[in-house]
Amino acid sequence: MMLINDKTSAELISVAHEMADAARAAILPFFRTTSLNTENKLDDGFDPVTVADRAAEEAMREVLTKRRPQDGVLGEEFGAQEGTSGLTWVLDPIDGTRGFISGTPTWGVLIAASDETGPVLGVVDQPYIGERFFGGFGIAERSGPHGAMPLKTKDTSELFDAILFTTFPEVGTPDERAAFERVSENAQLTRYGMDCYAYALVAAGQVDLVIEAGLNAYDIQGPIGVIQAAGGVVTDWEGNPAHEGGRVLAAANAEIHAKALEILRKS
């Protein structure tokens, strides 16, 4: 694990917020506009990308070039760039592009600064609402329409009291969907389609569980940083670190995590 002093941590926090601000400014002119052009990145299926995705990542990379050129970068749209500092910024300029092109405010900008063990800070930013979730270096806070307030996850201990989210009803493979549905059958409420915003709601103490499969590193590292800072737990479906993506279980606390994990492991 990389050792980060107070001066460096303050700089990283400042850079993360500057990148989120830059991404907001790049994205918002395109949101809910009739002229937005969408491209499909897949020959078989639908994985949309827009000019807003690319503009936001370019804006964040410009901030890093100016302020932290020694760091590596991994972004969804422009790939990996090696650094020399031991830190890598992991960027998803618009997580939830399907929601973005549909006009829903559930997409977000994801930012993480990570070392070899995973995120040391994370940001989930929703530009249209003006809501930002930040976690790292002893800080867990949300800012937005209601002002600034601390983030703290729920203390729900029983699955029958839990609120569960996932983005796609199909979740992943048929086996992965079956595993998700076993957890869902034991939960109080299951909801769909929130993309990264569901993870932010775990950190905010609104949601107990998010279960997904087929994620990339840039889909999950920002949320990991925020949720862990707020007191939650994020692993894969075997209880291992999830910062490389794959099958992810995000939970409000260790107790509810253990109960959901026991069911998922039966897949």
Rank of each mutant, 00 (worst) to 15 (best):
A148E: 15
V183Y: 00
R265F: 06
A113T: 07
V123W: 00
G214K: 06
G245F: 05
S85F: 08
E131C: 07
I227V: 12
E141Q: 14
G214C: 15
S184E: 15
V202R: 01
N5P: 13
F180G: 02
L28P: 11
E176G: 02
M19A: 05
R177Y: 04
E62I: 00
N253C: 06
L159D: 13
R247S: 14
L12P: 13
I227K: 02
A230G: 09
V207R: 08
T97Y: 13
F160H: 09
D155G: 01
L121H: 01
G96T: 06
V124N: 01
D195K: 03
T34V: 13
S9C: 11
V226Q: 08
L3G: 00
M1N: 09
S102Y: 09
N253A: 04
H257L: 11
V124C: 10
M149Y: 04
L64D: 12
P48E: 10
E77N: 02
Q221N: 11
L264P: 13
D53H: 06
A162T: 03
F137K: 02
L215R: 04
I4A: 07
D195A: 07
A16E: 11
E58Q: 02
E181S: 00
P93N: 06
T235N: 11
E18F: 03
G138V: 00
T156S: 00
L12M: 14
G144H: 09
I129A: 05
K152T: 08
R132E: 10
G83T: 00
Q70L: 07
L91F: 05
E158D: 14
G96Q: 08
S157N: 04
I129L: 15
G225Y: 01
T190C: 03
S267C: 11
E62K: 03
A213I: 14
A187W: 05
I13C: 01
N216L: 15
A162I: 10
T34F: 11
A229F: 05
A25L: 10
P169R: 00
G72N: 10
A80H: 08
K7L: 14
V73C: 07
E131I: 02
M149P: 00
A179Q: 07
N253G: 07
V51A: 04
G193C: 12
D53R: 01
S102H: 12
P223H: 05
K41I: 09
E170S: 02
R247V: 10
T167F: 12
I256Q: 06
I211G: 07
L42F: 02
